[in-house]
Design a protein around this nucleic acid. Sequence first.
DNA 1: GAACGCAGTTCTATATATTGAACATTCAGA
DNA 2: TCTGAATGTTCAATATATAGAACTGCGTTC
Lengths: 270, 270
Amino acid sequence: MTERARRRPQRHRALASAVAKSKAPAISRAAAVLRALGRSETPLGVQAIARELGLVPSTCLYVLRALVAEEFVAFDPDTKRYALDAGVLTLAQPWLRRNRFNDLAQPALDRIAQSCEVTTLGVQIVGLEHIIVVALAQAGQTFQLSTQIGSRFPALISATGRCIAAFGDHPEAELEERFQALRWDAAPTLEAWKKQVAQTRQQGVAVDAGHYIAGVTVVAAPVWKARGKLSHALVAIGIGNAVGKARLPALQDAVRSAARTITNQLCGEE
Amino acid sequence: MTERARRRPQRHRALASAVAKSKAPAISRAAAVLRALGRSETPLGVQAIARELGLVPSTCLYVLRALVAEEFVAFDPDTKRYALDAGVLTLAQPWLRRNRFNDLAQPALDRIAQSCEVTTLGVQIVGLEHIIVVALAQAGQTFQLSTQIGSRFPALISATGRCIAAFGDHPEAELEERFQALRWDAAPTLEAWKKQVAQTRQQGVAVDAGHYIAGVTVVAAPVWKARGKLSHALVAIGIGNAVGKARLPALQDAVRSAARTITNQLCGEE
DNA sequence: GAACGCAGTTCTATATATTGAACATTCAGA
DNA sequence: TCTGAATGTTCAATATATAGAACTGCGTTC
């Protein structure tokens, strides 16, 4: 009946359906446990995890033991609490090393961050569900944005969302439905949003001027990994008046042209 | 009976025993698949993965599908190849965010890297097996060391190894056995190594002058997370003559005292 | 252009992972 | 110090994930 308690059933359901459909349910459970541990501020006991995810305690224990054996989870024998362990990094590292998009995007992100004094991101688009930050560049040591590599956001939010809506080839109906579920500081009307999406389609860049977060201007441009396969986006984030009316056009140009260059490089070879 | 078949056994055996003992073998398999995909330069097909790990193809397929559903693995329907996906980052991120050692170590690593013009690492010690790089600071934009966050090294190698041998409370016999398995550019004799370990125990810092990698000086100091629980180490790496005889003592002092400070902070509270 | 080989996938019997209850252990409060 | 209620853990019955054979479809070779 508290917020937390009301939120749980969904997680149960989502996990339950994943478990039901899969032929390897233990893996869905393991992933759910890892994510639960990731969400938690503090290490958790077996029961706490089992309750949150709607698992049988004994099953949960076996999952945890397997994850400990694989070094993804750390176990403190004194407190009998579990937490994420450094092993999760050993998976992330090879991915970062081998990602073409990252290699191509990082220099461009650095350059734009420097010259325009903004924070820049490279994000990967995962369907209509969400986007994941995979590369990042800060302007100065000034503002530490709470965004980090690995952060997730809803797909259709902010400027990036307009790019996905404009270029993603998704059915209108689904876009609208998902649009309704978003949380903005100052949500645009569906009407207004569609107009902005149309404009984005025309210009090849999207701008969100304080809608998503008040006082923050976000610019985003799409990147394709192959003809018709929208896969990533470049994003620039300016806080406060760092991106005034005067400087916005230059930033838009920079982001759009960088995105285009990367698209060409990704599509061109192989 | 072929060459290929003979090459595999080690990985097979390790995985086979993990699978046999665990009550959640699917998780061990999933971890093995993720690591195999991490090792591979290119995306892999079902059969290739199954062969490398000694799995039944159909089982391997089910594991892959579950991992795809969890967004840890990306599937290309055209080529039918699998590769790591950005989802692995979403696990790494919360770990990095919440790690006390990281928060405490990063400023110190930055400072030492700047003032001594070396690359500095924070590493986590995972038993006698290996160490994992969990934090990192570069001096200038000069040399890009191949080390990254998430990299793994054998526990007893180089300067860090001497720290672990000196302060880890491990039985002598096991140390010797593992020492024999190490690969150095210029391996010290067991005799010499033991002397260096003894010296490390006395001084509280270890130095590896070109043994591990020719021309590279490594300095390491131990960090405890609680009384008697050696858990991390700070490492400084100087390439070529960046760390001459004259500057070495200062670097040793800096690393040792930073390690001590962090130890106190970790043990002090809670 | 047919035949072969190989990769990916589906299907089903069975070995086994999961469940839920029983047991053990810790801790708080009376 | 004892009691009760938590938690963590083990255990045995059974629902089910897995292994291995069968099937499909593509690319190569002869």
